[in-house]
Amino acid sequence: MSKAYLIATVAAVCVMMVAASVQAKPVIGQPAPQFTLEDHNGKSVSLADFKGKIVVLEWWNEGCPVCARHARAGTMKKLVNTYADKGVVLLAINSTASCTNESNRKAAEQFSLNYPILNDSKGDVGRAYGARTTPHMYVIDKNGVLVYMGAIDDDPGGNKKEVVNYVARALDELLAGKPVSTPETRPYGCSVKYAR
């Protein structure tokens, strides 16, 4: 009886640990999860490659109309154009189960993106970051610490006259040596189409 109870307890703890690891989410102020993925040209890209730089991650899926809207509006391209020479790197990550380097290359071409799309079709990196939507944005400071996660801006419908770009604001604050005033917001967009 007590043996069965012990086995049940151990099993329950194991289930809880697995559940905890699946749900592990990055925490603001803690080191961002490390990753190595291939970009749309097949080149290996690691977060560690950008030590000393600020890294912006955008969860991306070209089939999501919200991503496509921002791509057409040049929301992310403008970030690259504004902040690239200030030591900021933007990486798109595609955790769509069906994505390939080839499909990412085509999408990068189609939308004339000036940043790479990394292939996370297994979804491991997306799950490590708790990425839920496309787009879902993360900002990692020069020391590899996560300082922002959430929406790109406060305009889910793309129809506001005055838009607050949360990522740009976080970058401005970081570059001015200030803490990020809004470290977390609710992301919006399509759900990430993870492999099951």
């Binding site: 109309p65 499909s103 999408a107 189609q110």
Partner: peptide
């Protein structure tokens, strides 16, 4: 408006 198939790259071209 919008594409029927959200995953096909060909459909994406039509989408625009």
């Amino acid at each position: 408006c919008g594409p029927r198939t959200a995953y096909s790259t060909a459909a994406m071209r039509y989408w625009v």
